[in-house]
Amino acid sequence: MKYVLKKLVTMLITLLCISFLVYLAFDIIPGDAALSALGTDVTPERLAAVREEMGLNRPFIERYADWLINFIRGDFGISYKYRVPVSEMIMSKLPVNVMMAVTAFIIMAAVSVPIGIYSAKHKGKGIDRFIIILNQIMMSVPHFFMGILITYIFGLVLKIFTPGGFVSYDKDPGGFILYMIFPCIAIALPKIAMSVKLLRGSCIEEAGKDYVRTAYSRGNNTSKVLYHHVLRNAMLPVITLWGMTLADMMVGSIVIEQVFNIPGIGRILLTSISYRDYPVVEAVIVLIAFVVIVTNFCVDIIYQLVDPRITMQKETLNK
């Protein structure tokens, strides 16, 4: 419990640092929000007035503090460009990204574990070699290209979905799922390849360990050794990878959003950066950081549940 509390405090401090750095970065980099909102042919008087109105003349720390307090309250500010609350903008797109990440994650976990185990079990045989080669290909093909291939095959040749015909989840949930399944597969494929490779390797490594011999000496058959002994230990590195992958899937699907024409967080981020719509950029970046940190936090907790040695090590370090 103490461990969890400590982790929570660390998490908050990290978030605070990130928000500060983000705010600072946008203050330092050249470019003026007032100027980009008004256009270049504005009179200096008008510009000064707008700057005053936007609060850009106040000292940095004061602005940051204001922003932070509002941010914690859930008020992320108003978009310079669209003149709507940033929280509204993000909240309307967030479900799409969360759905996409969760689905891709589930596909990845459900597919990679059986394949990884199967491949490790048949190490060196033809089927294992085939899986390794397929894995290499999947890993080296970028997911946007995979997205293009999927669009071509399933969209244009097989006509299972309409490319670019994104259906919103609140209008047609069935159509939404049918449309989203393909980008999710595109995101999941390289990650499946990575987890299969990692799980296969760690299964083979664990299978050579002494405790496995002990397990056999008690009369266990191969599958009992695998499921009761090897798998749990072999999953440890995979869990770490999955934690990073989940965070990555939540926020890193910008390219896939473009390929499949999905209005998500990634698109907001791209447009707001080009319009110097700082309140939006800042909110999205802090949100991304938040997702990454929370996911890592969850992975740490899960890790501890799976591997009893973790707490012990933490405690010894503290002494």
Binding site: D210, Y211, T214, H229, R232, V306, D307, P308, R309
Partner: peptide, 8 residues
């Protein structure tokens, strides 16, 4: 040291 399963 290594003959027992560390996670059980």
């Amino acid at each position: 040291m290594t003959s027992l399963n560390p996670t059980k």
